[in-house]
Every structure is written in structure tokens, then in C-alpha cells.
Simulated scan of single mutants.
Amino acid sequence: MPINRSRGRNVHIYDANDPTTVLGGLRLANGVTNANFYSMMDILFVFTGPFFLQDEGDTKIEKDDHPLQPGKYFIVAADPFNVNNEPWLVRTISHATGTRTQTFCDAVRSRDRRCVISGRGVPYADYNEWSGFEAAHIFPLAYEGYWNNNNYGRWITIPPADPTKGSINSVQNGLLLDSSIHQDFDGYYFSVNPDDNYKILFFSIDSRGLSGKYLDQRLLNDPQRPADRLLRWHFRQAVLANMRGAGEPVFEHDFPPGSDIVGDILHGPKAAERMEYELFSRLGAQVELFPAVGRDGVSV
């Protein structure tokens, strides 16, 4: 069964006019400030006028750098607002392999030479040994059709070494990550907020003590650094996946030998989208993934 992202939440969000219906919530990790929480509200909801937050004691929460506290928070707005229906792209653990992504991997490895989240260096990079480190796509390769349809290639200024591989394989859409951190990144368990000095924020248990820290400055100083708009896209997806309603499902990816993978997928939530993603990720199938799309949904 998929993991429930809402389990363990200690921050809960309500409309002040309907204080019994939970609109969303958050597993609070280190580094989340009141100002961060306000920015998350601007992603989760579509407001037609000004709003503010208050706690259970009717105290207004200021948009400042004080740490957010666990508890119930109520949205106070004179004008109507709605939950954002921006699409969330189903994503499971992925690995960039094959000739199509080799130049992508080579470019990301050459630029980073370390996990850019934890800072852990690759011990044998000089010998081209990368065991335990993986080149991760910020925007998943499996959704290249969605990428092309929304012209996200306009965010890329450094095309891949082989332009026939598509702009999605630009080094600007990549990060070198420790393998386990890559899994958390693909699962939207954490993200990087480029609009808050590239702060790393976790939406789940942070066993490594990384939440609240900042992206490696050496990467930010690199002329081939990842595109801010792609980091912003990933952060929005992480907020929606973890905080909207009960949260999006977290899918099993480690199927033991002999498992009925197809059966498990087809009998679970978002079966069609997940099947397409798994076919592309596991088999390299030329499958174009087009989830139900509302608006573009990316702040630029």
C-alpha cells in the first residue's frame, strides 16, 4: 500500500470560516520559518485578495524569520480562495541510464564531483568511479512530452553536448546526489527553495540533519548551475505533494523478485499515470507522459 504523507503531520491548515475541515498540513522540519509557511500558502491556494494566518489563540502570524511552531493555523481572508488544482506529476525512483543520458551524467558529474545537498565528495571521481552517487534530473526525463508541450526548454541556456538528446538533458536540469538522497529528491521528501537563498527544506523526517541548510555555494557560483526556474518547479511540486489535502501517495519502488509489479500498480492509486512512468523509467520505453493538465502552474 502507498505510504500516507499526512502521517506524522504536526502542522494543520484550516479556513478560519470553516475551522473543522482540514485543508492540508505539514510534517515540520528544521528551518521552516513563518515566511516560508506563507510562501507555501501561496502555492497551495489561489487567493483573490490579501490574507493572513492566525494560530489557535487568534494571534496573527507575522511573515518573518521566526521558526514556525507546530499547531493549527487558520487562513483569514475577506475574499474567497480555493485550493490550487495545479497538477502533480506522479514520480517514483528513477535512474538516468543508457546512451541517451550518458552525456547528461558526464556533464553533471564533471560539474559537481560531490553530492550538492550533503556536500559529500566522490572519493574516486578522478578515476571515473561514481558508485553511490547519481546524476538526478530535476524535472524528470519521463515527462519529456510535458516538458516540450509547456516549452520548459526556454529555461535552458546551456544545451546538452548532443542537442539531439533534447534540452531536458541539459546539465542545468541536473544535480549530483548521494544515491539515498536522490531517492528522497525523486520522492519530493525535500526540495530546494531558490527564493529563500536556496534553502533545503524537508517535508518528512530528516535523518541527516540537512533541513534548513543551504545549497552548496560552489554550485551556485558555477556558470553551469541549475536553472532557478527548474528548482522552483520542483519546490512547488514538493509543496503540493506533501501539503495539499492528505498529500499525494508515496509508491513502493523496491519490488522483491517474483513480485506482481503490474498488479500492484494497477490496483493502486493513479494507476495509469504510474504505469506509464514505470514503463519509461524501467524499460526506456518511448512513452509520452501527459497528466491531466490545468494551467502551466509554474511561477516564473
Rank of each mutant, 00 (worst) to 15 (best):
P2A: 08
S6D: 07
R7Y: 12
G8L: 07
R9P: 01
N10G: 02
N10V: 03
H12M: 05
I13K: 11
I13F: 09
Y14D: 07
N17V: 10
N17F: 06
D18H: 14
P19W: 00
P19Q: 13
T21E: 10
L23C: 08
G24C: 04
G25D: 11
R27L: 13
L28K: 03
L28P: 06
A29E: 04
N30A: 14
N30D: 11
N34T: 10
N34V: 07
N36L: 02
M41L: 13
D42W: 05
L44T: 02
V46Y: 10
G49Q: 00
P50K: 11
P50I: 06
L53P: 02
D58H: 14
T59S: 04
K60I: 12
K60D: 10
D64C: 11
D64I: 11
D65E: 14
H66D: 15
P70Y: 14
K72Q: 15
Y73P: 06
Y73E: 12
F74W: 07
I75G: 06
A77Y: 10
D79Y: 10
P80Y: 05
N82D: 09
W88Q: 06
W88F: 09
W88S: 06
L89Q: 01
R91P: 01
I93R: 15
A96N: 07
T97E: 10
Q102A: 12
F104V: 01
C105L: 01
A107G: 00
R109F: 03
R114Q: 12
I117S: 00
S118G: 09
G119Q: 02
R120A: 15
V122S: 00
Y127K: 04
E129W: 03
E129L: 13
S131Q: 15
G132R: 05
E144S: 08
Y146C: 11
W147Q: 09
W147S: 02
W147G: 01
N150K: 12
N150P: 01
I156D: 14
I158W: 08
I158C: 03
L176T: 00
L177S: 00
L177E: 00
H182N: 13
Q183L: 12
D186Q: 08
Y188I: 04
F190T: 00
S191R: 02
S191N: 01
V192P: 05
P194M: 08
D196Y: 02
N197D: 14
N197V: 04
I200S: 05
F203T: 09
F203S: 01
I205L: 10
R208E: 13
G209E: 09
S211C: 07
K213H: 13
D216K: 01
Q217F: 01
R218A: 13
L219H: 13
L219V: 12
L220I: 08
Q224K: 11
P226K: 03
L230P: 03
L230N: 14
W233G: 04
W233H: 14
Q237C: 07
A238G: 04
G247W: 14
H253V: 08
F255G: 03
P256R: 05
G258N: 03
S259V: 00
I261S: 00
G263N: 12
L266P: 07
H267V: 02
E278K: 05
L283M: 13
G284Q: 12
V287R: 13
V287K: 10
V287Q: 12
E288Y: 05
P291M: 09
A292V: 06
V293D: 15
V293L: 06
V293Q: 12
V293K: 10
G294F: 05
D296L: 15
D296I: 12
